[in-house]
């Protein structure tokens, strides 16, 4: 089918999509920059800094999923979003569990 046969309402807009990608680049660059700046300047205590860079990383991951991978809350994306959420659940269980187990073992035997 020729693109021109598709009604304009359903045809996507290249300019808008290019802006979308650009936003992905800019937001990621800013978030990365912020994280590096925090680590270089060290304005807060270490635990606060750790929390900040972790939060910045999570936000950036969200941004990239949205802008580059086009995962969002639209209905047609439900399966994919569910998959991402389930994966996140599995990862949290595995990583948090492992850290808890291993650190406890080291604390008991260290």
């Amino acid at each position: 089918m020729n693109p021109r046969n598709i009604p304009p309402a359903t045809r996507d807009d290249p300019a808008r999509e290019r802006r979308h990608s650009l936003l992905g680049l800019v937001s990621s660059a800013l978030l990365t920059g912020a994280a590096f700046a925090l680590v270089l300047a060290q304005p807060f205590a270490r635990p606060v800094l750790l929390a900040c860079i972790a939060a910045l990383a999570l936000v950036q991951i969200g941004c990239q999923l949205f802008f580059f991978l086009h995962i969002d809350l639209r209905r047609s994306h439900r399966d994919d979003l569910q998959l991402v959420l389930f994966t996140s659940l599995v990862i949290v269980l595995m990583v948090a569990g492992s850290m808890w187990i291993l650190s406890s073992q080291h604390a008991m035997m260290g």
């Binding site: 359903t10 999509e17 991978l69 086009h70 047609s76 994306h77 994919d80």
Partner: peptide, 12 residues
């Protein structure tokens, strides 16, 4: 016009 998978969709 619907998106059907992650990443860019090329339906157009």
């Amino acid at each position: 016009g619907t998106d059907r998978h992650p990443g860019l969709n090329i339906h157009g």
